[in-house]
Design a protein around this nucleic acid. Structure first.
Lengths: 195, 195
DNA sequence: ACCTGAACACCGTTCAAGT
DNA sequence: ACCTGAACACCGTTCAAGT
């Protein structure tokens, strides 16, 4: 029910009053099932994450492919459901879905040969890129970036003037995958030097 | 005035009514200076970004040091002023401050020897890490991560059980710098292979 | 255990009016 | 150009009460 509203009408539409209406009940009835609105949103968004996780394939892929697949599915679920994505970047979402993503990331980074603190730090890095990508897609569409020009004299921003068209007109998923690729390249180089 | 409230009392305290009170004026008077609340927040947060940018040093540092310095200053300003940080990850902030950061990033990546689309894609990657780090610090303190355990049977999450203490108890800025380092390593490797 | 009704303390914003 | 006063259409949440 909460998931339906969040998916079809967005975050702003998911108010206690509207959800109560949709359930044919009084707003206060909801408080018998969750402690407050943040808890309600946490449950709903965790479910979105849980639904997004790909099942383990029959024959497991190499760790790098599997990592990209998992992290992309995580990101895409939040970008494709903007209501859920907006909540995810505004409050913590702790549940079976986010626990499962974290477990998979840690397992694959172990498999990749990272050791010690590098494992958790690499998992953290991946999380940053996912969170950043969700914020970027949900709040900074290309048209917004084009407004960057004109806030400083053009002579003061030669590189911005030169690169803005390419900077603004991105293929969002491709840019995310490129950032992910560079980051994983960094992990690998670190592991090879360290080992 | 808006900056003062945002910095000292946080985002929730910056309402049209409270700002009007602080200015000794009616809420509606504000609408004569900005079109709506989003525009007000955009102006305030852009100013926070602008104030954070380090001036160019007398003798310029190597591009990598300068890049880390700039991007860190950008992130730290938003983490240190949670009100501004929360706004920044919820809506676009376009102004002289964000234009200046983008210009500096593009200039240094050019200096680094990146060419073509790699320049804007690398700038995008850096942005993702900054946005992600701000979200992470402002919404996911260590105590939150510890709640991850228990949402799945422990036998299903061996890696989470093993790594959670290290995963949860992070030095936030160090983790950010490590992610940044890996990413820039990735840029460099790419450039060296591509060239 | 589960739900209701009325109220409290807020929001951002519109509209018509004043100087 | 700049500001006021009153109102509209909402919020999340508390509290006391009902079954």
């Amino acid at each position: 029910m909460a998931l339906g509203i969040l998916g079809s009408e967005g975050e702003a539409a998911l108010t206690m009053r509207r959800l109560a209406d949709a359930c044919g009940v009084t707003p206060m009835a909801i408080y018998h099932h969750v402690t407050d609105k943040a808890a309600l949103l946490e449950l709903a968004v965790n479910q979105v994450v849980l639904d997004a996780l790909p099942g383990r394939t029959a024959s497991p892929l190499p760790w790098r492919e599997e990592l990209v697949r998992t992290v992309s599915a995580f990101r895409n679920a939040l970008v494709d459901n903007p209501g859920a994505g907006r909540v995810f970047v505004r409050q913590a979402v702790v549940g079976s879905g986010t626990a499962a993503v974290t477990e998979i990331m840690l397992r694959l980074l172990n498999e990749a040969g990272l050791t010690g603190d590098a494992v958790v730090e690499a998992a953290d890095s991946l999380t940053l890129v996912v969170l950043g990508s969700v914020v970027n897609e949900l709040t900074r569409p290309p048209a917004v970036r084009e407004r960057l020009i004109g806030h400083l004299a053009e002579s003061e921003t030669p590189f911005l003037v030169q690169h803005l068209p390419a900077y603004a007109h991105r293929d969002p998923e491709k840019r995310f995958l490129r950032a992910l690729g560079w980051l994983i390249d960094g992990f690998e180089r670190d592991r090879d030097i360290g080992g």
